[in-house]
């Protein structure tokens, strides 16, 4: 089972876990990506996320399908938030459940690493004295 979603509202972690709950699965990984209070040494005020919804959903589905294809994983849930996020809010939740833990650990790591490289979502860091699109410039 795969379930991917992009939402402008706070993510529902309990719902993500419920979707990946499966009597055949003995291992479940829950990854949360959380807004940190600084980047390098600079204090962050908030993050602003934007996305290309149709393509982002397509890329998220590819990642979820690849996790199931490449590991012995049964369920992958990936929910990503967009809009304005404050410190300590959850930007992304990934839940991976598998019969055994190793596949869940590896599949979850692959999912977040690949999401950061391929999914058309962008974040802007807002500081007290300016702002910057992350990774835009070398």
């Amino acid at each position: 089972m795969i379930d991917v979603k992009i939402s402008g509202f706070p993510l529902d972690e309990a719902a993500c876990i419920a979707k990946a709950t499966d009597p055949a699965c003995g291992g479940m990984l829950v990854f949360r990506g959380i807004v940190r209070n600084k980047t390098k040494s600079k204090k962050i005020v908030r993050l602003e996320y934007e996305c290309y919804p149709s393509m982002a959903l397509k890329e998220l589905k590819k990642i979820a399908n690849d996790v199931i294809r490449l590991w012995d994983v049964k369920n992958v849930v990936i929910h990503h938030r967009t809009g304005i996020l404050n410190i300590s809010e959850i930007a992304v939740i990934i839940v991976v459940s598998a019969p055994h833990r190793q596949a869940a650990f590896e599949g979850c790591q692959y999912a977040i690493d690949t999401l950061k490289k391929t999914v058309p979502i962008w974040k802007k860091e807002v500081f007290d004295d300016g702002e910057e699109w992350v990774s835009a410039h070398a």
Binding site: Y49, A91, K116, T118, V119, P120, I121, W122, K123, S135
Partner: peptide, 9 residues
């Protein structure tokens, strides 16, 4: 679409 470096997560 023009896709600058992505930075989700």
């Amino acid at each position: 679409a023009i896709i600058p470096p992505v930075s989700g997560g």
